[in-house]
Design a protein around this nucleic acid. Structure first.
Length: 511
RNA sequence: GCACCGUUCGUCUAGGGGUUAGGACGCAUCCCUUUCACGGAUGAAACACGGGUUCGAUUCCCGUACGGUGUACCA
């Protein structure tokens, strides 16, 4: 790579950041880091009507959470500031005007109603999708059809206008894409895109090209939905005289709904019960709260790992990657071409893998935090114990409480199915004796001596250890399945275990 | 409709002119075990279709089908 690598993620602040956007940001970031380049964040807020309060802050927080560090942004500043397009507004007009001067763009004075009328006309004449293009522009009110003096008058009186790109009538436009190779579009199918809107703001097409050029962006890595407008951008680079500086393009395959039916949508995800946003998003307009992966209990490392594999693979059999490993392994060449269906199951699996890999101490802290939200307090020592007992059976930190509820609450009721099969006279005898033996214990209770004592009891009663275990488990936990019983007993302590045994014997009827 | 992009197990994918088409998630069975889980083992499961090219095509080419994206003074 001859040019310094500078990539950008350019979201528009219209709401919560879609998870697909997070993946795009991630791919950009990995390329930046891999080549010791810069990761730039630019806010594309040229549509003032769609601006949503809090969206920028959300984007910032989401990227921080996922572990993407920005080198330049509205918040970090940088050599090419400002990084908010609304603050760069004054900049764009001169480029649009330059294009007009060079004959590659023109002023158009048609009102929306006028164009709408023309459009209807064309439709009724059988045109399927009417475009403002090399044919129709000659029937409209613009600087191509009006005299110079008329145009100047209109401009002088401040009549609203837009500047449109004058797309050539017959020309092949070739776009080179790092993922797909050369893609050719014919100019006759493109319309004369608005470059500068009547409010003086640029459209995406102009702003994006101007800013990428000015900010010396080397690679534009964005979603595939942009591929159809890439020829417009290529034309713009050419007409602006920036062909040599044109960044390389990589259009990413889209993340699709689980059944492949369209781009991953919020509506669809809602139905299936998983989020589309990294963080919870509270819409300021509607009082709607949308779920976020963070709040659902996903680890950011797990999300990174999951997301990066949606459309890319290292070509090895490695599944688990740290950010650092990804930076080393990632490459645009290995990004796939086909859209990727979203599978929440895989995300859960990654979370479980990351949870298992975390030290108990850290998990305990997270667990304590989680409990605090429910006004439950637990010591670090106890929490570590809980975590070690339950670690292999949970996917999320929040699962610890539910999975191990018997560690916190004595059973009130008992699983009837287990009771009918496993609760019998022998179990009652064993439990009674076991309780007494525990009371006599002088050493500190642990899983090992808890087990030894139970063995002694069953041996002395001439009962098979295995045959009563389920009954014992039922008495102590209320259910027939769970973590190592002896660990549970040690965790609960003699007093609590005794209480539970008494309660079970009192409550459960022998079938 | 038109343009563009795509198509290997249910899903994410590896591979690529001659392979028992590999891995992961999920699923099933077995083992471990006091149960459940973890772990281990095993299994079911894929080259969209039709033509070419070729000794040979899942791989290359062309069509078809299917899917996706785009078709705004939205990004």
């Amino acid at each position: 790579m001859d040019k310094k690598v500078r990539v950008r993620f350019a979201p528009s602040p219209t709401g919560g950041l879609h998870i697909g956007g997070v993946r795009t940001a991630l791919y950009n970031y990995l390329i930046a880091k891999k080549y010791n380049g810069s990761m730039i964040l630019r806010i594309e807020d040229t549509d003032q009507t769609r601006y949503v309060e809090g969206a920028e802050e959300y984007i910032k927080e989401a990227l921080e959470w996922i572990g993407i560090q920005l080198d330049e942004s509205p918040w970090h500043g940088g050599e090419f500031a400002p990084y908010r397009q609304s603050e760069r507004k004054a900049l764009y007009k001169q480029y649009a005007e330059q294009l007009v001067k060079d004959g590659h763009a023109y002023y158009a004075f048609d009102t929306e109603e006028e164009w709408e009328k023309k459009r209807k006309e064309l439709e009724s004449a059988g045109v399927i999708s009417p475009q403002y293009n090399s044919i129709t522009r000659m029937q409209m009110k613009n600087s191509l059809t009006l005299s110079e003096s008329e145009v100047n008058t209109k401009l002088a009186v401040g009549e609203p206008y837009v500047i449109r790109l004058k797309v050539p009538r017959k020309e092949d436009i070739r776009v080179h894409d790092l993922i797909r190779g050369w893609v050719t579009f014919h100019s006759s199918l493109l319309d004369d895109r608005v470059l500068l809107k009547s409010d003086g703001m640029p459209t995406y097409h102009l702003a994006n090209v101007v800013d990428d050029y000015l900010m010396q962006i080397s690679h534009v890595i964005r979603g595939e939905e942009w591929l159809p407008s890439a020829p417009i951008h290529v034309l713009l680079y050419k007409y602006l005289g920036w062909e040599k500086e044109m960044p390389q393009f990589a259009h990413l395959p889209l993340i699709l709904n689980p059944d492949g039916n369209g781009k991953l949508s919020k509506r669809y995800a809602d139905q299936l019960g998983f989020p589309v946003f990294p963080l919870q998003w509270k819409s300021p307009e509607k009082d709607e709260v949308m779920k976020g992966y963070r709040e659902e209990g996903y680890f950011p490392e797990a999300m990174v790992n999951f997301l990066v594999l949606l459309g890319w693979n290292a070509g090895t059999e490695q599944e688990i990657f740290s950010m650092q490993e990804l930076i080393e392994a990632f490459s645009i060449e290995r990004i796939g071409k086909a859209g990727t269906k979203f599978d929440i199951n895989k995300a859960k699996w990654f979370n479980q893998q990351y949870l298992k890999a975390k030290p108990n101490e850290e998990l305990a802290k997270l667990f304590i935090e989680d409990l605090k939200k429910q006004n439950i307090t637990l010591s670090q020592e106890k929490a570590e114990k809980v975590v070690s007992i339950l670690k292999d059976r949970v996917t999320f930190v929040k699962d610890f409480l539910q999975e191990g509820s018997y560690l916190f609450y004595a059973p009130q009721t008992f699983d009837q199915q287990v009771a009918s099969k496993k609760w019998n006279q022998q179990v009652v005898e064993v439990l009674t004796a076991y309780k007494n033996q525990l009371k006599n214990l002088t050493a500190l209770l642990d899983a090992s001596n808890a087990k030894d004592i139970l063995h002694q009891v069953t041996d002395s009663l001439g009962i098979k250890f295995g045959s009563v275990m389920q009954g014992v488990r039922l008495a102590i936990t209320g259910v027939g399945a769970g973590a190592d019983l002896m660990e549970i007993i040690a965790f609960l302590g003699i007093e609590e275990v005794s209480k539970r045994i008494d309660y079970a014997i009192k409550t459960l009827k022998i079938a």
